[in-house]
């Protein structure tokens, strides 16, 4: 009998600490599957952020380092200077990347840093217990916007792909969603392209994953998937913003 699906060697055989229904596990797996298929697990160096995925290094079987809150792109910049041929990636949530780490991600893109950033956007702070994120939608209820996010008080959602795709150094920018098997397959393709951009040293590659946080959204996982499709995709359209000619 031929196996049609196997657990990637890139993931360690270990239960994760993520909540039921969380999509971090899917994003982790896609990144590791792509690295395994490219035969590059041994060349990979990952940076985990402050947030739910700080312990990503417990699951991803590659060299990894934790970065202070928001600083993963700066840490990746330092690593890439020492090992220019390594497959370096940051894995960051919305609070980490689009709030406290906004300067670091924008300047990494401006410099055209030759690493990949995988951005988990679930429109809320997970680890600290459901506070407003920079990507929280207008009207969305969180523990710091109990009446719903009011743009007059707390501003508007950060649209990272739209922002970063304006910058010359960000050569690959794509937003994907982890809410259906078809979209997950597209997400994997995006991860693969991002690493190809790095392999060919073309510039900065950025993939945003629309993700769910059932616990802090107060929804069952299946309802959370629906909420993502019905609400998030309108503000954060799933599309490829930029793709260099050298990458198919």
């Amino acid at each position: 009998m031929r196996a049609i699906f196997e657990y990637t060697k890139g993931m360690r055989d270990q239960e994760t600490h993520y909540c039921p229904g969380c999509t971090h596990g899917i994003a982790h797996r896609l990144i590791m599957e792509v690295l395994e298929e490219k035969g590059k697990l041994g060349e990979a160096i990952g940076i985990s952020p402050v947030g739910c995925s700080i312990l990503a290094h417990q699951y991803m079987d590659v060299d990894m380092v934790e970065a202070a809150h928001g600083r993963a792109p700066a840490v990746a910049t330092g690593i890439k200077r020492v090992h220019p041929d390594a497959y370096v990636f940051t894995y960051q949530g919305d609070g980490d990347l689009a709030s406290i780490g906004m300067a670091e991600i924008v300047h990494a893109a401006l410099r055209g840093e030759k690493f990949c950033t995988f951005f988990i956007n679930n429109a809320i702070y997970g680890m600290t217990g459901g506070q407003m994120a920079p990507t929280t939608l207008e009207g969305q209820k969180t523990t710091t916007t109990v009446m719903g996010r009011d743009p007059a008080v707390s501003g508007n959602p950060a649209v990272m792909c739209e922002m970063l795709s304006q910058l010359k150094g960000a050569v690959y920018v794509e937003r994907v969603a982890l809410n259906s098997p078809a979209n997950i397959r597209k997400a994997k393709k995006a991860v693969s392209r991002a690493f190809e951009v790095q392999e060919k040293k073309l510039g900065f590659a950025f993939v945003e994953f629309l993700s769910i946080c059932p616990i802090n959204w107060g929804l069952a996982p299946s309802d959370a998937m629906k909420w993502l499709a019905e609400n998030m995709m309108e503000v954060f359209p799933v599309k490829q913003f930029k793709n260099p000619l050298e990458v198919k």
Partner: peptide, 10 residues
């Protein structure tokens, strides 16, 4: 933090 990354990389 760049120094942190470069030093962690050896």
């Amino acid at each position: 933090n760049m120094a942190y990354g470069a030093s962690a990389a050896g």
